[in-house]
Nucleic acid binder design. Structure first.
Length: 428
RNA sequence: GGUGGGGUGGGUGAGUGGCUGAAACCACCUGUUUGCUAAACAGGUAUGCCUGGAAACGGGUAUCGCGGGUUCGAAUCCCGCCCCCACCGCCA
């Protein structure tokens, strides 16, 4: 969430910054509430002081029954008053927090204003594959080569599921292993987190309340009871909570992690042709990069993460581009996002394979993740960054489509050959 | 799922109703002394919020897993929840 102090310091500036997301919040109500909050706190503190003095008097004057009775009366009244004001305060604080939790992150200076249409391609890599035959789409290729079984996936798990089989499973696994090897080389620590998370963890990562409709909930005990857990929609949710409520040492920063989990998302609604196959599913595999950095350092870490993803894509020999997202397309909790988009010949489009974002202190404020700043002798909130590194469900189809051969087979990218043990995927 | 035990500051751990934000020890920091290190001695070392201050640093208030209750007063008593440990049961 946004630090309320920043809003109070310059409401117009924040409002203007948020207008890039095509909304312009009016903070006057918030400011009023905040003023009221402070005055309520002042009143409570005053009464508590009085109560304390009473308690001291009681200790001394226990022998006089009349005085004791009077003190009890006085204390009782004070206590009642404190309780009343405290209730008001709590309700008010809940309102303020609720408002802040629903406020999206402030876009960075360099983020273009407006919606999707204002996304800017900032670089293009690789060569446009030249296919002198009609490109098949990855659904067709995966099915004809026996790499993915969509029908039985749906039979087992319902809409939006599939099974990787044989060489397809090997290719999927090879991608994951390749990603893992790259991240390890880049100095990230590997984490395999739980997939089932407590509801509370969803708020920290920014999933809730904004995306609460899009995740799967679990009731460990009886049906009908309130859900206590949910299935993570990305490893980021787990990684963002890893250091929640901790005070990190400045010397340990930046911390870099990567995690692998399947991602469970409802993705309700019908899919367009452009998104058939593995492009948009309920369960897909993703390796996620996550970093915690000092505020002054987060931009550099961000650039580094983008470069690392670009490097992975280049090694896979794919044609792709990098886009700077416009504010309206940057997701709720993030201040800046670059998308890496891979070329899909069948639909003649670039499709997102990775999103790298800097959340600034947005997640750290929700999760109370701080570090001890030696110079300022203060605990400050860290900046968190995340990036897909990467989602196989988008890379897999891109490889099939970009590496397809005239005879219907698919060449294996060089870097994956050691993981799979063959250079060509064909029908045999 | 059952039964029992337990959650106190960076760590160990005392504290069963009243200046206890919390003993003691360890760790850490700063001074003093010693040729350096070590040792010894002295002092310091939690976090949130409100408030004064440009800042340094003050004043206030809250916090002993979380939330609620009893009481003039709760780390201490009662209730609910979360988590940890031990044993038993179950285990595709």
């Amino acid at each position: 969430m946004i630090n309320i102090r920043k809003i109070l310091a310059d409401p117009d500036a924040i409002s203007t910054a948020l207008s890039k997301r095509m909304q312009r919040p009016d903070f006057s109500d918030l400011i009023e509430k905040e003023d009221l909050r402070k005055s309520l706190i002042g009143r409570i503190e005053e009464k508590r002081r009085e109560l304390k003095q009473i308690s001291a008097r009681m200790k001394k004057g226990k022998s006089d029954p009349e005085a004791v009775e009077a003190i009890k009366q006085e204390g009782s009244t004070l206590r009642g008053e404190i309780q009343t004001v405290t209730e008001q305060l709590k309700a008010l604080e809940a309102e303020i927090r609720d408002y802040l939790l629903n406020l999206p992150n402030i876009p960075e200076e360099e983020v273009p204003a407006g919606g999707k249409e204002n996304n800017e391609v900032i670089a293009t890599y690789g060569k446009l594959p030249t296919l002198n035959f009609k490109a098949k789409d990855h659904y067709e290729l995966a099915t004809s080569l026996g790499l993915v079984d969509f029908e039985r996936g749906v039979k087992i798990g319902g809409n939006g599921k599939w099974c990787y089989i044989g060489d397809g499973a090997l290719l999927e696994w090879a991608l994951l292993n390749f990603f893992i090897s790259r991240h390890r080389k880049n100095g990230y620590t590997f984490i395999l987190p739980p997939h089932l998370l407590r509801i509370e963890s969803g708020t920290v990562a920014g999933q809730f309340p904004k995306f609460s409709e899009d995740v799967f909930y679990i009731q460990p005990d009886n049906l009908g009871e309130k859900a206590t857990h949910f299935l993570l929609p990305t490893a980021e949710t787990a990684l963002a909570n890893y250091h929640a409520n901790e005070i990190l040492s400045e010397d340990d920063l930046p911390l870099r992690y990567f995690g692998y989990t399947p991602c469970y998302r409802k993705e309700a609604g019908s899919y367009r042709t452009a998104e058939r196959g593995t492009i948009r599913g309920n369960t897909f595999n993703k390796v996620e990069m996550f970093a915690l950095a000092k505020p002054g350092n987060s931009t550099a870490i961000f650039e580094q993460m983008v470069n690392e993803v670009v490097d992975i894509m280049n090694q896979l020999g794919l044609h792709f581009q990098v886009s700077r997202l416009a504010a309206g397309d940057v997701s709720f909790g993030m201040a800046k996002t670059y998308d890496v988009e891979v070329w899909l010949p069948s639909i003649n489009q670039f499709k997102e394979v990775s999103s790298i974002s800097n959340a600034h202190e947005f997640q750290a404020l929700r999760g109370n993740i701080r570090y001890k700043d030696k110079e300022k002798k203060k605990n400050l909130h860290v900046h968190t960054l995340n990036g897909s590194g990467l989602a196989t469900s988008r890379v897999f189809p891109a490889i099939l489509e970009q590496y397809q051969q005239a005879d219907g087979s698919v060449k294996v990218p060089d870097v994956l050959v050691p993981f799979i043990g063959k250079e060509i995927l064909n029908r045999d």
